[in-house]
Computed example of a mutant assay.
Amino acid sequence: MTLFARTSIAAAAALFSGLAAAASIGGLVNTGAGQSTGSTDTNYKYTATGNAAGLSGFGVVSNGNADPFPSWLPNTSSSSWLIPGADQNTNYSPTGNSTFTWTLNFDLTGFDASSASFSGHWAADNNGVLLLNGVAISSISGQRGYADWTSFSASSGFLAGVNTLQFVVTDTVDQTYNFTGLRAEFLSSNVNAAVAPAVPEPHTYALMLAGLGALGFIARRRRS
């Protein structure tokens, strides 16, 4: 095949194809990742309703050596439990249930949202529902959501822009011994970069047509 034909075919291929580089999803941060006890995790913001109505703020990294540990899963270098305030022993639900909605945002601007996916696991005291852009993708039921991991994953429902994860945690009423908190770890994530279609120069069209013509000429010669 001549150099002209090869160049023309390459131009045509560049016109009609593109490679989308895969990447992990930025902004999917584990609770308390890399932070010390008592520090504020500004990735996770909460609002409260029910008995604790009116409370809001950012998560505080728990002390893994004090109550409710060792009942809660132990803090690790990968993640830590977040609590609503600096006092780990505060009872937010002595006379009625409280619901804490923990929010984590991540942005897929510049990426192909239809290719996005992630997986992980979470725990909560006491139970809850995990929502991706308002749609439930995992739930924790019972009174011991803090003692074991619950898996979650998503491969659809993503937006081409800012996406929202909401960990809606219910703290059930108890007059005496009562705690609440959230723990989340992302184990994998993937998204492809959005590929903008190339706008070819006029000579690219000429090369493409010439390349297709060269292919037809070669094919005819082989048949004759």
Rank of each mutant, 00 (worst) to 15 (best):
Val60Ile: 15
Ala20Val: 06
Gln35Tyr: 05
Gly85Met: 04
Ser79Ile: 08
Leu19Arg: 11
Asn43Pro: 02
Val129Glu: 09
Ser17Thr: 15
Ala53Gln: 11
Ala53Lys: 08
Trp102Ser: 09
Ala147Thr: 13
Ser56Cys: 04
Phe69Pro: 00
Ala113Gln: 12
Thr99Lys: 00
Leu73Arg: 12
Gln88Asp: 07
Leu19Ser: 15
Ala116Tyr: 03
Thr90Lys: 09
Val129Asn: 04
Leu19Ala: 15
Trp102His: 09
Ala66Pro: 11
Ser36Phe: 07
Trp81Arg: 10
Arg144His: 12
Ser141Phe: 00
Thr103Gly: 10
Gln35Met: 13
Ala123Pro: 01
Lys45Asp: 05
Asn127Val: 00
Ala20Asp: 04
Ala66Arg: 08
Gly57Arg: 14
Ala48Ile: 02
Thr109Tyr: 01
Val60Phe: 03
Gly128Val: 04
Trp72Glu: 09
Thr31Gln: 13
Ser98Gln: 12
Gln143Phe: 11
Thr40Asp: 02
Gly27Gln: 06
Trp72Gly: 06
Arg144Gly: 04
Thr40Ile: 12
Ala123Ser: 08
Gly64Ile: 13
Ile83His: 01
Thr109Val: 01
Ser77Trp: 09
Val29Leu: 12
Arg144Asp: 11
Ala123Glu: 03
Asn126Lys: 05
Asn30Ile: 08
Asn133Glu: 15
Ile140Glu: 14
Ser39Pro: 05
Ser71Pro: 02
Ala147Ser: 12
Gln143Thr: 15
Ala116Met: 06
Phe106Cys: 10
Gly128Phe: 05
Phe118Lys: 14
Gly27Ile: 05
Tyr146Gln: 10
Ala48Val: 03
Ser119Gln: 12
Ser80Gln: 06
Phe16Met: 10
Ala22Ser: 15
Ala124His: 06
Gly120Trp: 03
Val135Ala: 14
Gly18Val: 06
Leu132Ala: 09
Thr42Arg: 13
Asn63Arg: 02
Ala53Met: 07
Ala33Gln: 15
Leu55Asn: 14
Ala23Asn: 11
Ser119Val: 10
Pro84Gln: 07
Gly57Gln: 12
Phe100Glu: 10
Ser79Asp: 12
Pro70Ser: 04
Asn127Asp: 14
Ser139Gly: 15
Asn65Pro: 07
Ser141His: 01
Asn97Gly: 07
Tyr44Asn: 03
Ser71His: 02
Phe58Cys: 02
Ala116Phe: 04
Leu108Arg: 03
Asp41Trp: 00
Ala20Leu: 08
Ala48Lys: 02
Trp72His: 14
